[in-house]
Amino acid sequence: MKKKILFILSITLILFMHANTIRIQAKSEINDDTSIKLRILETTDIHSYLLNYDYEKKKKTIEYGYNRVASLIQQAKKEHRNTLLFDVGDVIKGSPIAEYVASSPMFYSSDIHPAYKSMNVLGYDAATFGNHEFNYGLDFLINTIKGADFPYTNANIYVDDRNDYEQDDIHFFQPYLLIDKEVINEKGEMDNVKVGVIGLITPITQQWDKAHFDNKLIIKNMRKTAEEIVPKMKKEGADIIIALVHAGLESDQGYRPKSGNNVRDISKVEGIDVILYGHSHGIFPVKGAKGPKGVNHEKGLINGKPTVQAGNWGNHLGIIDLTLQKKKEKWIITKSKSTAKPIIRIIKKKKIPIVSPMPEMEYILSRYHEETLEYMKSKSLLNHLEE
């Protein structure tokens, strides 16, 4: 009899402990207090203005230069232990250095573009393409990005297969990336966040560089593409999804249809959590500014999504600070702060540099700078002789 009672008591105790464990686990899943701080950094529209040098005025400047924003990047990374760094396009065309590189057969075959030599130092996690990446043609672009130590992504540029009805849509570039980011949570423990990254570009690029796109590539609607791709990213385990969008707040003038091809429309895509954008050389957020419906400069949100735009030519660094909390085994953004941090500040109408140029960057670029000056002299002389 005693054995029977002991057996019943043992079973009862085991069942009680099991039920209690289930309750604790369920409570933990609902109210998991694990949180992390994640900093996302953005550069955009660098246009190969790699040095704080005005080639037209032939003197140094404090108003722009990638070597200055590079110092801001280093500073921002030191301030936060969990960071990701992205570029949103228009890297290889714009400045005299870019023109010199594009005109030199040596670079095409044997050297790394100085823009990528510079960017590689800072440890980018990913980038997307801008419309000016296509100005020198597809061969130049493909050869040049081989020098980048980080992956590129674009989802809405497709192989032009309109004459092949047996062919499915083929993305020309990798449409998205999944980054397994190791982080340290607020408890001081190692954790992991799977970050999805999707790149998108304004479709008017196809018109602007028609000669390079005809019968080769087509660019489809940004929003429709994102709505197709984002669920796949979620299915593959993306905890948060960042959209790198080379398009403005509004659609480009002259392009039809406008709908779906701007940042405001992308912000309405379910599943996209964060937006980094460029193209229009603007700044977002701007303190005190008011935007159209859904655009909140004060909170740095567009339709509720944390968003930033970091100007151009390295004059700003885009920063989004996120707090993520784990709820039901999923990371949820509970807090965000967006900042477009300038490389100068204005005090009593006087412009004062916030950071000095990064010495390592100046060393890397010194040869290219001197060669660009020589190139400009020879070009000027040639133009003079032709006159």
Rank of each mutant, 00 (worst) to 15 (best):
M1T: 11
I8C: 03
I8G: 01
L13C: 13
I14C: 11
F16D: 04
A19D: 07
A26E: 12
S28F: 12
D32Y: 03
D32N: 15
R39C: 03
R39L: 01
T43C: 02
T43K: 01
T44H: 06
I46W: 00
H47P: 04
S48C: 09
Y49V: 00
Y49W: 11
Y49T: 03
L51C: 04
L51T: 04
L51Y: 01
L51E: 02
Y53S: 00
K58E: 15
K59T: 15
E63C: 07
Y64D: 06
R68T: 12
A70K: 01
A70H: 01
S71L: 05
S71A: 14
I73T: 07
K78N: 13
R81N: 13
F86Y: 15
D90N: 15
V101W: 02
A102S: 14
S103W: 02
S103R: 11
S109I: 07
P114Y: 10
V121C: 03
Y124H: 14
D125Y: 05
D125S: 12
G130N: 06
G130D: 01
G130Y: 05
E133D: 05
F134R: 03
F140W: 07
I145N: 05
K146I: 04
D149K: 14
N156E: 08
I157Q: 08
R162W: 11
I170Q: 12
H171M: 05
Q174P: 04
Q174I: 10
I179P: 09
E182S: 13
E182D: 15
V183Q: 05
N185Y: 08
E186Y: 05
E186A: 03
K187T: 05
E189T: 09
D191F: 10
K194V: 14
K194M: 13
V195R: 06
I198Q: 01
L200E: 00
T202W: 00
I204K: 02
T205P: 01
W208A: 05
K210M: 10
H212S: 09
D214H: 12
N221E: 11
I229S: 02
A238N: 05
A238P: 10
A238R: 06
L244N: 03
V245N: 07
E250P: 00
D252I: 06
S259T: 13
S259G: 09
G260Q: 03
G271K: 01
L276V: 11
Y277P: 00
Y277R: 02
G278H: 01
S280L: 00
G291W: 06
P292I: 04
G294D: 05
N303L: 06
Q309K: 11
Q309M: 14
N312W: 10
T323G: 02
K326M: 04
K327H: 05
K328W: 07
I332H: 05
P342C: 11
R345T: 13
I352K: 14
I352V: 15
P353G: 06
M358D: 12
P359C: 12
E362K: 07
S366F: 08
Y368D: 12
H369W: 03
T372L: 04
T372W: 01
H384E: 15
H384Y: 14
L385G: 06
L385V: 13
